[in-house]
Amino acid sequence: MPGTDLIERFLAAAASTTASVETVQRDDEALNDALLRSAGDGPIIFASAGDVDPNLFSRFRENEKVISHPTIDEMKTIRVGVTDAFCGIASTGSVCVSIGRELNGPVSSLTRKHIAVLDGNTIVPRPRDVFSEEYLGGKGLRRSFSFITGPSATADMGPLVRGVHGPGKLHIIVLV
């Protein structure tokens, strides 16, 4: 099955970017568990562009520590951010996160830890496929977004350091 193959390749590539990655059943309870486990203690800011079935987040949203409408202060002090992603890239282990009316963009860039939720059916083979009509119903052609490939990193201070202006930790949950 080509789908499974893409997921396997995605998992391997994502791991090689030093992101952590797991597969989780397409189920709101399972997703809730996985999200809480990887988020750890403290408040979680959640933003979704509707790219992953919103019903799957219904259980997660009920948690008290999950903030869907953050205040300015909450945004300024964010430590853990959860967003959906509209596609994944098998060859590079990247997730594509929208920058639009919802807060996916800032939530995934201001936070220390970013957890991205990806539907396994939206994985495409290569980065360039995001710019083709054939894939994803052309979604990649009609929006602002970022390919996120591993945590933020720099070699400017000498050795490679992870966690600069963007998150030092990236966790990817692939729904299967």
Partner: peptide, 14 residues
């Protein structure tokens, strides 16, 4: 790919 490859159509909807 670098960590972030940003594809932007500003002014953003954000």
């Amino acid at each position: 790919l670098s960590s972030y490859t940003n594809i932007l159509e500003p002014p953003l909807d954000l």
